[in-house]
C-alpha cells in the first residue's frame, strides 16, 4: 500500500484508518486494563484506584506507531502530489490532475489524522488511574 505509485481510494484513507486503529487500540488497552485490574469492576470496594502506568506506556507506543504510519502516508502522498505538473484546483480530466488531487486530499487527511491521534493520546497524559 505504502509503496503504491498510483494514488487510489485506499491510499486516501490510509491515515484516517491509522487514526481509527490507534483510537480503538488506546480505548481497548485502557478499558481492559481497568476492567481486569479491579477485583470485580462492577462492585465498589473502597480500595485505591488501580494505576494505569503500563497502559499509558502502551498507548504512547501505539501513538508513535500511528504517527509513523501517518508520516509514511504523508511521504507517499507528497510523492503523488508532485507526480505531474497540474495546477490546483486539479479539476481537469487528466491523469495528472486525478493523481495530484488524490495526493493533495490525502495530505489534508494526514494532517487531520495526526491532530486526531494527538488529541486521542492526550487522555493518557492527564489521567493516571482508573477513577
Amino acid at each position: 500500500m505504502i509503496a503504491s505509485a498510483r494514488a487510489s481510494l485506499i491510499t486516501l484513507i490510509a491515515a484516517p484508518t491509522a487514526w481509527a486503529a490507534h483510537f480503538l487500540t488506546s480505548y481497548v488497552i485502557a478499558a481492559t486494563a481497568c476492567a481486569k485490574t479491579m477485583a470485580d469492576a462492577r462492585v465498589f470496594t473502597g480500595a485505591a484506584w488501580p494505576d494505569l502506568t503500563p497502559a499509558r506506556i502502551a498507548i504512547g507506543v501505539a501513538t508513535l506507531a500511528a504517527l509513523g504510519v501517518i508520516a509514511l502516508s504523508t511521504r507517499q502522498a507528497l510523492g503523488h502530489w508532485r507526480d505531474g505538473d497540474a495546477e490546483p484546483p486539479y479539476d481537469d480530466a487528466t491523469r495528472d490532475d486525478r493523481q495530484q488531487f488524490l495526493g493533495y486530499a490525502t495530505l489534508l487527511l494526514c494532517g487531520l489524522s495526526a491532530v486526531g491521534v494527538v488529541f486521542v493520546a492526550l487522555p493518557a497524559v492527564f489521567i493516571g488511574d482508573c477513577r
Binding site: 491532530v115 488529541f119 492526550l122 487522555p123 497524559v125 492527564f126 489521567i127 493516571g128 488511574d129 477513577r131
Partner: peptide, 20 residues
C-alpha cells in the same frame, strides 16, 4: 478551531481526575 479545541480539551481533561 484546532487551537481552541485543543485548549478546551486540555482544560476538560485536567478537570476530570479532581472531579473523581
Amino acid at each position: 478551531p484546532t487551537v481552541v479545541l485543543a485548549a478546551l480539551l486540555v482544560f476538560g481533561l485536567g478537570l476530570m481526575p479532581q472531579l473523581r
